[in-house]
Design a protein around this nucleic acid. Structure first.
Lengths: 338, 338
DNA sequence: GCCAAAATCGTAAACGTTCTCGACATCGAT
DNA sequence: ATCGATGTCGAGAACGTTTACGATTTTGGC
């Protein structure tokens, strides 16, 4: 009970119970071939010593750990939501969850490194969130969520980004807006590019000419969106509405508008994308495109577990696309006649 | 490169490079005693095969993994903030982060189970968030954040809960409020009890008699706060202000007030506790007590790393208490004369 | 009571590493 | 040429498990 108490191993239990380690192992795993009497004795000793088998040693021997790993680059609203969904879906599956945080370490290859560290040893399967690598060689299954490039070899879970973005911009058009700014996401992300495509398509449908001056790169984080959103709102011919590629940058637009004395939605309509919990809390509540991040997490887990338990059976669908849906709140309104 | 490619081990590298596994191990770890020529050859083969040493096997042999584990019961705003702080502090320390999510599995003993699984094997040290167990026997160090009971044997990181709560209630008193409701937290948590104590002290200081009818248990989650907050706001002699034991339940009070047609802060002042990011976004922005959750995460990591690297050296302080500070936003106002 | 079958248990190998120890080669100095 | 020192490398044990296999004991039917 001292702090430097050496870890109690299966050998300690065996010695104390007067049996071999093989028997202890059989007892803890409920294998056939141990009498009720010794079973009980081992159980008592285990309780006494507080023995718990080492995940590591077990994993080295078996190649099954009943753990799934999720690789994220950091804890932000998106990945936090995803984790919630994944954790929920994992309930009662007998699997446990390990989250490996890339520590935003700026390193290029961290994904591949962590992947080979977890895969094949620690985790039975892995979920990659917003991965740059798309081709991996691991012993066990990998599912990618919202990958950087499309057409992946990996099974993927994505949202209907294009359709959602189109619906968002169409909503603005329906409210009479003509000058609609776009705060883009990270250009290396497939999802961000699809959202931009949706923006363009909706403009084209409405017969509005695309104006490159109304497009700025916001980079998906509040910080990175500061400068471009200010640029957008201080344009000589200021847009009457802004569609931001995700909620985090939309919230930054809201903040910038407030700093500039612009009232939302009277002077400016704002639409986001993601529907993170924060978007319902901001003032005014954000009109946004719901992509049910938790559902993505759940879908990813379902695919992964399917792959783990039936490696031979091909997936019914390698690429799951989840629907998106416009939720109208109070950050959008009819354009003001001037 | 097929999906079922067996994991490439150190033996494969050794065979291909025409050396022994010992040499490969020395090469990858930069140990002394391998010539520049073989070093180079091994490096090439490693690149070719994409070899990455198994965290598990390494950890079984060494007892050092350069990984710290954080045990949380689920991903909610509090733990997410804490993780952010921890991840930040971990930058450039050479340590990596593993998050083990209890999966809110309702199991009583999950903490102890996961603890012995991670401790001694996978992680060099562990941070427990809101732990119920307080006495643990592990081979390596454990730091507890916001534990359920006080006077712990474990090193802990806590916030000045009592002082913060007192400041919050005093703020309400200064605004002229006399009937101040309290939406309590989980009664099993030390921090929640301290916040209640602060509430009582502030009342006593102001010469206001404690009214048990104004106290309800909110349980720290939005869901659990629904019913009690409605009870509080539909009281015959309704309080003019409510102090909620954390932001999540304060936000629920805001919502309930809105449902009841009460205007905040005109009809009702609300104060929260925690200063989670959401609290700045709600309408109206929440007056709350900042406890800098990220700072708690960072402090915990600092303590833990200290314990890992210098197990012999006693901590300068076993129990770190971080200051709290009232941040006044727009959910509180002078009581209305009626 | 005897013998085969069934029940119970122990021995040892394997998982992928790291590290100690000893073996061999090379080298500079006598 | 010889010797000690130094540099380079391989064999093998160990970490804590699980499991195949074989050894021993118990059981049950005659």
């Amino acid at each position: 009970m001292a702090r430097d108490a050496a870890r109690v191993t299966i050998e300690d239990v065996a010695a104390r119970a007067g049996v071999s380690i093989a028997t202890v192992s059989r007892a803890v795993n409920g294998r056939y071939g141990v009498s009720a009497r010794t079973m009980e004795r081992v159980r008592v000793v285990i309780d006494e010593l507080g023995y718990e088998s080492s995940l590591i040693a077990r994993s080295l021997r078996n190649h099954r750990t009943n753990v799934v790993g999720i690789l994220v680059s950091g804890i932000e609203p998106f990945s936090a939501e995803l984790l919630k969904g994944a954790a929920r879906e994992l309930q009662d599956t007998g699997f446990e969850l390990i989250v490996y945080s890339g520590g935003m370490s700026g390193q290029e290859g961290w994904e591949r490194r962590y992947l080979s560290r977890l895969g094949g040893t620690l985790a039975d399967g892995i979920i990659l969130v917003t991965p740059t690598v798309v081709q991996v060689a691991t012993a066990n299954p990998v599912v990618a969520v919202d990958p950087h490039v499309g057409g992946s070899e990996l099974p993927t879970v994505v949202a209907q980004n294009l359709e959602g973005a189109r619906a968002a911009v169409r909503h603005l058009v329906d409210l009479g807006h003509r000058r609609i700014g776009f705060l883009a996401g990270r250009p290396d992300l497939e999802s961000a590019r699809n959202r931009e495509a949706g923006y363009r398509e909706a403009l084209a449908e409405a017969g509005i000419e695309f104006d490159p001056d109304l497009v700025r790169v916001g980079g998906f984080t509040e910080e990175n969106a500061r400068v471009p959103s200010r640029e957008l709102l201080t344009l000589a011919d200021r847009p009457t509405a802004v569609f931001a590629a995700n909620d985090l940058s939309a919230i930054q637009v809201l903040r910038t508008a407030s700093e500039l004395g612009l009232s939302v939605p009277d002077d400016l309509s704002v639409v986001g994308f993601d529907n993170i919990p924060e978007s319902a809390l901001v003032d005014p509540p954000l009109t946004t495109v719901d992509q049910s991040i938790q559902a993505m997490g759940r879908a990813a887990i379902r695919m992964l577990i399917g792959l783990i338990e039936h490696p031979e059976r091909p997936l019914d669908e390698r690429h799951v696309t989840l629907p998106t849906q416009l939720v109208v709140r109070r950050s959008t309104a009819e354009v003001r006649r001037s």
